[in-house]
Amino acid sequence: MRVIEAEKIKDVVSRLFIEANTILRDDVLEALKDVLKKEKNKMAKDILSAIIKNASIAKKEGLAICQDTGLPVVFLEIGQDLKIMGDLYRAIQEGVKQGYKRGYLRNSIVEPILRKTPRFDPAVIYTEMIKCDRLKITVLPKGFGCENKTKLKMFNPTASIEEIKKFIIDTVREAGPDACPPFVVGVGIGGTADYACFLAKKALLKKISNSKFQIPNSQIFKLERELLKEINKLNIGPMGLGGGTTVLGVNILTYPTHIAGLPVAVNISCHALRTATIFL
């Protein structure tokens, strides 16, 4: 049986949060450069250039891409044949604290009612078991300008795909400039209400759909492409000031659901979609 020390996980999580917060994801940066070439609106071009320049300064100087270094979210995929020595969740929370402190990231976390003494932790942790002896850790520092625009709708099971698309598009429309477009839109379809929300967030971890990293085959990929095209016709644009770049990508995850229902959740990410992953 493979063994991992929890203490090692602490350091890994710490490094991942610094990396995610300072180095923009390859596919996101690629998509930004790509849309800059295609964008015709002058102000939109100017803002996209600033976003790309910002990513370059952040990486070079080890500065946070955005001052909202997010609520730390950690996705674990734990191999059932792996033995973890020590306290895994504690190691993660300690890693979060260490990473945020060492990386000069912002202490944005407070008790929900009291709202006093902002701190770095705790992270929200999602755990899934898989059949192997490895551990996959992905961190997502999630900014709240975009998180605030999250929506869930419990559709009738006979709802059409057009109704679902309209809901997703309307959610983006309502998010408008506040959530820092151009967005990456995470969509979760199926499961239960809570599971659809989880899928919508997890969808943000996928490589974004209009980049060269995607494998174009499924129905879902087709739906992603259609939504991407339709949302980009809204003319929201970077900072909501117009242009053809409202979303960089639409990422969908699905799960079987009940015959009586159809949960659909939308979780938007700002243009600074920050994640980092490691396999141990």
Binding site: I51, K53, N54, I57, E61, I65, C66, T117, G143, C180
Partner: peptide, 29 residues
């Protein structure tokens, strides 16, 4: 005014001085 959203690293280049004024218990706020 608007300024470049999600470009905090870039905008830090235009700041010459930072002095705390009040409510330090609010941390980043």
């Amino acid at each position: 005014f608007l300024t470049y959203a999600g470009c905090g690293a870039l905008l830090s280049k235009y700041v010459r001085k930072k002095i705390p004024i009040a409510y330090l218990d609010l941390g980043p706020e």
